[in-house]
Amino acid sequence: MARPLLPPWISCVLAALVPAQEPQLAAPATFDLDAAFAAARPPLAEARWTLIPWRHSLTDALVEAKEQNKPIYLFVNDGDVDSGRC
């Protein structure tokens, strides 16, 4: 069961703790943390690529393909696919 993240009384306490020169960032009074966290994760329908045993060397994969007599599926993209920095 999701709980309110911050009860009203602690929102006031936390607001008072923020230094005067900083912008006053009001904490939300009620908040479903678990739902928000789930929404930030990739949906399952777009996350199954993590189950693919990617090789990251085409040179080595050619040796493996010959040994196993399998074609290579090559996916080329700029950057790192694992972290999504691509």
Partner: peptide, 8 residues
């Protein structure tokens, strides 16, 4: 298949 990902 042998799945491969490399950068461009």
């Amino acid at each position: 298949f042998v799945p491969v990902h490399i950068s461009a």
